[in-house]
Amino acid sequence: MLAIVCPGQGAQKPGFLNPWRELPGVEQTLVSLSEGAGVDLVRHGTESDADTLRDTAVAQPLLVAAGIVAAAQLGAGTDLPAADVIAGHSVGELTAAALSGVLSDEDAMRLVAVRSQAMAKSAAAEPTGMAAVVGGTRDEVLAAIERHGLHPANINSAAQVVAAGSLDAIAALGEDGPAKARVIPLQVAGAFHTPYMAAAREELAAFAPELSPSAPTVPLVSNAGGEIVTDGSRYLDLIVTQVASPVDWEACMGALRERGVTALIEVAPAGTLTGLAKRELKGIALANLNTPDDLDAARALVRDHAGVPSTADQEN
């Protein structure tokens, strides 16, 4: 049983689209996706430096486009079976919506353009930030986050929670954090997935009626508690709400475990989610689809796992 997962903001790296651009048709695809996003994806994915790629309005469209391109190349010219389940982390949920057919590629790019610009505006309204809290016990970590007036924006795993809020509170958490935990400030523009993004959520809600969601072709796992979504409108509602609500990736991994997933492929720029899966979903096969050189291994994983019942299913 195969899962495809799509990374969130922070996974982007300078020049990471250069290898994909060498494949036939990819540059034309990126130009087309750029039109929907209003961003020059070819230039940013091949030439822009790390500081430019940290811009939310650049990073988010770039990540969605990269996932669409990598997934398309995975199946190009093959008769590979479809994945059994799809999930995305934060903005990766928009990539997942495109890969599953909930949104057309064009609509996914239009939505990520609105999302990224709205979140950038909300982030600029006041100085806020995020920090990863690694280690410690869950109860103590959450208590420390609350004590400093922060919010648990990303629950990434049993050992990693991302706190978000004012910069002063982030600094205070670093000085007075939970026992046996490290507090690592993140290079992001604001307190995403918290009430600080309320205006962005309202902007997305106003834009959403312009989209035409469809039922997904495969089950989708939502960041909202790992809910399995089979209705396109429901998934779109959750994507809108998500910008001001926590991303519960630990629950998403739990949902993959419960479905009996035996293999997981992360589309470009890959590594973050497979890293979490390596620790939390022990024993499953993993593949990073970062460059065209990874295609053969990823396709082999698809052939071996997609459409194959889990061990639990086989025993029932």
Rank of each mutant, 00 (worst) to 15 (best):
Leu2Phe: 04
Gly8Leu: 04
Lys13His: 13
Pro14Val: 02
Gly15Pro: 03
Gly15Trp: 05
Glu27Asn: 03
Thr29Tyr: 00
Ser32Phe: 05
Glu35Ser: 01
Glu35Leu: 00
Asp40Thr: 00
Asp40His: 00
Val42Cys: 11
Gly45Arg: 05
Thr46Cys: 15
Glu47His: 11
Ala50Tyr: 07
Asp51Asn: 11
Leu53Ala: 01
Ala57Ser: 15
Val58Asp: 10
Val58Ile: 15
Leu63Gln: 08
Ala65Cys: 09
Ala66Met: 08
Ala70Tyr: 03
Leu74Tyr: 04
Ala76Pro: 01
Ala76Gly: 08
Gly77His: 08
Leu80Glu: 02
Ala82His: 06
Ile86Gly: 05
Val91Glu: 06
Ala98Pro: 11
Ser100Cys: 12
Val102Ser: 06
Ser104Asp: 07
Asp107His: 02
Met109Thr: 11
Met109Phe: 09
Met109Pro: 08
Gln117Thr: 15
Ala118Val: 00
Met119Pro: 02
Ala120Leu: 05
Lys121Asp: 15
Ser122Ala: 15
Ala123Lys: 10
Ala125Phe: 07
Ala125Pro: 03
Thr128Gly: 14
Gly129Glu: 08
Met130Leu: 11
Gly135Val: 06
Val141His: 10
Ile155Trp: 02
Ile155Ser: 03
Ala158Cys: 01
Ala163Ile: 14
Ala164Gln: 05
Gly165Gln: 09
Leu167Arg: 10
Ala172Ser: 15
Leu173Asn: 01
Gly174Pro: 07
Gly174Phe: 03
Gly177Asn: 04
Lys180Ser: 12
Ala181Leu: 07
Val183His: 00
Ile184His: 04
Gln187Ser: 14
Gln187Phe: 06
Val188Glu: 13
Ala191Thr: 02
Pro195Lys: 05
Met197Ser: 09
Met197Val: 04
Met197Lys: 08
Ala198Gly: 02
Arg201Pro: 01
Glu203His: 02
Ala206Asn: 09
Ala206Cys: 06
Ser214Gly: 03
Pro219Phe: 00
Ala224Ser: 13
Gly225Thr: 07
Glu227Tyr: 02
Glu227Gly: 03
Val229His: 05
Asp231Ile: 00
Gly232Asn: 11
Ser233Gln: 14
Tyr235Val: 06
Leu236Tyr: 06
Leu238Pro: 10
Leu238Glu: 14
Val240Arg: 00
Gln242Ser: 13
Ala244Pro: 07
Ala244Leu: 06
Val247Trp: 04
Asp248Leu: 04
Trp249Phe: 14
Glu250Ile: 02
Arg257Gln: 15
Arg259Ala: 03
Ile265Lys: 04
Glu266Ser: 11
Glu266Ala: 12
Val267Asp: 01
Ala268Ser: 15
Leu276Glu: 02
Ala277Leu: 01
Arg279Lys: 12
Asn290Leu: 13
Asp293Gly: 11
Ala298Gln: 12
Val302Tyr: 00
Asp304Arg: 14
Ala306Arg: 09
Ala306Thr: 10
Gly307Pro: 08
Gly307Phe: 10
Val308Asp: 05
Val308Pro: 04
Pro309Met: 09
Pro309Ala: 12
Ala312Thr: 13
Asp313Thr: 10
Gln314Asn: 04
